[in-house]
Design a protein around this nucleic acid. Structure first.
Lengths: 330, 330
DNA sequence: ATGAAAGCGCTAACAA
DNA sequence: TTGTTAGCGCTTTCAT
């Protein structure tokens, strides 16, 4: 295909290794000769062959990244930060999507490891012991994000339970006494990794308990939550709010309410979770919990690269979060 | 690192090549022996070394994908389709973001080629002849998407001009006689590749011309378009609509109007372009132009893989589009 | 400062 | 059916 270092060497009348030294800025080649070689190489359109280099070095300067999808802005935003940070460190990420398919997750990890990624950054949807053992046996750094998997792998995320509790306390402080909680199905607790979702629900429960009762809670972890919510007509009887496990649900709920002619927050309050970039386009502004999405992607990559370079990293990194006071809760 | 095929061979008392044949389903190995080797390999945790294979095959089964960013849903959606299609064909995409930086674009292409991608799929922001010559000299298949670059590289997209014209004709048919057009800056025509944007503007102009005048047009290709639009108070004097080069602008405009207490579409019409997935969460529903985003990503990868496999593909692929009749234009 | 030899893990071509 | 030889393009000893 391309020009090889051998061809450059022949052209310059030196050995391959001398070309290598010149090209990679290593010592052991005279300045004049180095300049000459560089010029010749450029003229010939020489380009280093990363695959060959990887083979001999045993490092590819790639990382494998597994996320849910790219439709949910939370993931596309964190993925963007991951790509940016990797790029800045001259690593290239393999970005692969699991789409909530545990089997696919395993296949993808296998594929990535075959391609000799130097490390893995996982938003995992699995949590079975076989998978943990499998990952451990890979003998490459693995970092988990948001959905914690096991003590074997450093984790980065936020304290979801406390975050949700803080958000709920804020809502309660505004006098809301009836709460609907919208979340994806929480039934598959045993098989799927829903660490994050579980913690958010737990935080909600804890906050309500600590408030000493008196607040009515309805958990809507069903696909047709919109229908169920649509049948509720007496939002104003008790001051009511719909809390959501993510901003995407909150946006849906806001529209649902608008369609029914209900005003947010006058008739019913709404709160989200994540603080995706997209919220800036919404009106009324959404009360939500800000995860430092960009910082998380960036820190995750940095920590993974540190591990790859043999440095130790904390086993548990919880980033700061913030309750965002929007107009949807008053 | 991992187990090599040589180790499996030693363990099985055969030669490396026999293991290779067994593992890759090639002929030239007895069935009993094959089964035995496969079992041993699995037991030992053997995993093919893709880097070594790539080196000898001269193919990496990777493609380089350059897109703008992942924040804009248009790109994250098309990228998702690209990843999915690549994955289904056992290719892995390197997804890299240019963020509208022409210099970065070149650096990234260089990096990808060094990593021996089998082909490139570009949403390019450059269009200078040097770049075209450079890409041609790479001698690997290059496919361009949305922003056409040159006849040298197959292109996939939609007929932006006709699409915009169709959309505008629909708007005019509703009696709108005053049009504001919101677009990113169109000034850097000479240096940046704004093929798509240019065509959309041209389609708008053409449609207005064909309508025989009588329609007032204001092009807002400035960063502070919101301010300018904010100063317009007489939307209802002449039936007015704000058309946008993309849905993201249209969403911003809708909110802008809502903030000012103006009703869409009663006081002013709004139309977007792209039909991003996110629109389903908006109210009132947006009139827009549907690009088959998923189909585009899928077809682009398919065509690129066809080229990689030595097949010819059309130089110009225009996908069907559709005017989506939302509530924001009546 | 320069080069020769060896090898990363795999596979294509040829031999037996 | 099985194995040997050679080599992909590069880099790491070790020698000169």
């Amino acid at each position: 295909m391309g020009i090889t270092s051998k061809e450059v060497a022949d052209r310059c009348g030196v050995s391959r290794i001398t070309v290598d030294r010149a090209l990679n800025g290593r010592s052991g080649v005279g300045e004049g000769k180095r300049a000459f070689i560089l010029a010749e190489a450029a003229k010939m359109g020489y380009r280093p062959h990363y695959v060959a280099r990887s083979l001999v070095k045993g490092k590819t300067a790639t990382i494998g990244v597994l996320v849910f999808d790219l439709i949910n802005p939370f993931f596309s935003e964190v993925t963007q930060a991951i790509e940016k940070t990797a790029q800045a460190n001259e690593y290239v990420p393999y970005i692969m999507l699991t789409e909530n398919d545990p089997d696919k997750e395993k296949v993808l990890v296998d594929m990535l490891v075959s391609r000799q990624v130097d490390g893995l950054l996982l938003y995992t949807v699995r949590k079975d012991p076989e998978y943990i053992a499998y990952l451990r046996a890979l003998n490459i750094p693995v970092l988990t994000m948001m959905n914690r998997l096991s003590d074997d792998f450093p984790f980065i995320g936020i304290d979801d339970a406390r975050a949700m509790a803080d958000l709920v306390n804020y809502v309660l402080s505004k006098g809301y006494r009836r709460v609907f909680y919208v979340s994806p199905p929480l039934r598959h607790r045993e098989t799927q990794n829903i660490y994050t979702l579980n913690n958010r629900l737990r935080g909600l429960m804890d906050a309500l308990n600590d408030a000493g009762g008196g607040v009515e809670l309805t958990v809507l972890d069903v696909k047709n939550y919109a229908q169920v919510l649509g049948n509720v007509t007496d939002f104003r009887q008790v001051k009511s709010a719909v809390l959501c496990s993510s901003d995407m649900y909150a946006i849906e709920v806001q529209n649902l309410m608008r369609k029914r002619g209900l005003r947010v927050p006058l008739d019913v309050g709404v709160a989200g979770f994540d603080n995706i970039h997209f919220l800036r386009y919404l009106e009324p502004t959404l009360t939500t919990l800000a995860i430092p999405i960009e910082e998380m992607g960036e820190t995750a990559v940095r920590m993974l690269l540190a591990r790859i370079n043999g440095k130790e990293v904390p086993g548990n990194t919880l980033l700061p979060y913030e309750v965002v006071l929007g107009q949807s809760i008053v």
